[in-house]
Write a protein that binds this DNA or RNA. Sequence first.
DNA 1: GACCTGCTGCGGACTG
Length: 731
Amino acid sequence: MINAHEKLDFRVQRWIFQQGWNSLREIQCLAIEPILSANTDVLISASTAAGKTEAFFLPAISAIADHSNGVGILYISPLKALINDQDRRLESLSDLLDIPVTPWHGDSPQSKKRKLRASPAGIVLITPESLESLLIRDAGWVKSAFSSLKYIVIDEFHAFLGSERGNHLLSLLHRLEHLLGRLKVPIPRVALSATLGDIEKVPFSLRPNQSLPCKIVRDSVSSASIQVQVRGYVNPGQITEENPADAEYQICEDLYKFCRGGNHLVFANSRARTEGIAATLSDMCEQNLVPNEFFPHHGSLSKDLRESLEKRLQQEQYPTTAICTMTLELGIDIGKVNSVVQVTAPHSVSSLRQRLGRSGRRGGPSVLRMLIAENEIQKNSNIADKLRLELIQSMAMIRLLISDKWFEPADTSLYHFSTLLHQILAVIAQWGSIRAAQLFNLLCREGPFRHITLDSYKALLKHMGATELITQLGSGELVLGVQGERITGHYSFYAVFKTPEEYRIVSGSKALGTLPIDSLVLVGQHIVFGGKRWLVKDIDTDKKTIYVEHAKGGRPPRFGGSGMSVHDIVRQEMFNIFCKGDYRIHYEGQKIDFANKEARALFQEGAHFFNDAGLRENAIIQDGANTAILTWKGDKTVNTIAALLSMHGFEVGNFAGVIEVIKASAADVVEALCNSAKSELPDATELAQSVPEKRVDKFDEFLPDELLAIGYGARAFSLRGAKSWLGSHFS
DNA sequence: GACCTGCTGCGGACTG
């Protein structure tokens, strides 16, 4: 293995030498053989900044170095920004070997695209949506330009796994192999990622039909140390002289202390909170007469504002702290930061893991602070507050990440009917016409939509015919209908994910970003946006533009959004912590306490309530006129139990995993659940039929009701989870 | 209490 690099092209070896590298990293050595062999898929899993991209490109470029014509490597990325980063990073290596690199996405220069069209060669960096547009508009060119394609590499593979967009990507790759006549001799796929849960199963998601084996390459367990602290804050019920500041302001005061003078990332979980915190911190700088070094970063901010912040972080010339959402979670090139701060509990352990990977400079420890606010307990406080569930969830996630090295695997069992409908339209648009059976083979039997039965497929085609998306010719061939022509003809067709209608926010001639159309902003209102304070001067509904100018005061606008789902394992860990009365982590015979004084006190309050209420033995407790159910299961199971009770005629609320049955006695609820445990339960589809609004994804509006219910049921409910919980408590 | 991602081709204004 020491000499693994000798198998690389001598010019690649010279490039490695020029970089001043003494040796290749472990995964880079391990990846050389399987990639050069070109007879297997490869999964490269290694921590952030461990050199995954080079682990692929060094051998892959060696393999195509003497490739004379046609594109040799197709690189696919979830982000345009990542394509631009890779284009820069590949420059010196590709120059040395005289291999052209072409970034191909909506914002990349037409001149480069024209050049590739005239003489296809080298490496193409593309998004799934641009690949879709190429297949629909110019499949003939794709067929010749990619005829000798040697590798397909997918960056940040976890960002695709299990999602509508991920299934779109897999379908595109299968259609590409089909077009190139490579179904029998598939093109090797290489997936790069730092965060893949349940990694042994991921090869089935990289190539669902398993027509090629997959080699997993990963680095040995990293020994990088982690420093972590959870800090607690109490949000007073009323602002008084004794309690002069709400929790968010206290948190900002601490952020100002921790972060000023260094480079940090503060993940605040919502765009509104991100804006609020950034504006408060910037005010603090102003009050203290120091230059501002706190800036927001999220998906609604203009590209301009985002890129200038990314550049500022990367250059490290001025101390800079970004208050951000998940936009800075993926591998955009900002370098490593001194520390990562998480304000409010993270949504998942895997996202916490991605975020933590952003800190740890020059082999130093990763530093994570978690700042959690809980409400002061009042007479009418709810059970989630009394149990301090947000704090406990944060502690559970830290334990899972550090002690168990566990994080959520992607859910790859869903149907993705919306994306199947999109692909039916896309394939017909690409080919002009196709037989129904051929289409089923391509997308469902051989392609990625393997969960979908022939009956569901037939029902979908029938409904698409009835709504004029497609038409069947006398010969039996399917072609686009009037509506299908209209939808596929518009550029917005290429993406499978939904985006809400938005207003642009403009100050003078400068675009600041966008706001969803239902955010209820009014003329004369003061808002916070881009970390600054503004007065809304005018709203032009025709041009969908909000005009603002600088002002004082104001609150962040509403951005909207939908909830996220907590995993079974996280809730079980929370229950374990309560049962043991201890959240500390065992390490080398010691117990490590990662909470500060305030967080410890809040934990004790939650633990007392847990014990006093007898929650270790009882899942159901009377709460005034209501009854609360604590299943300590993930949201899919909780949703299912809540839906079952709702079918029994109960009025049910569900917050933070606690089911609240309104105006019902514990005895009545227990009786209903006992009956459920004994009887045949409805299936997930039947439960979904009682949900009034099931349209979530982009093309759901075109689906027949029966498929909408099947898709929604599989996503929202877990009958298996509900049965097992009912079985263990009521039989 | 609530995240993120992407797509076209053309016309018109502006710059060198």
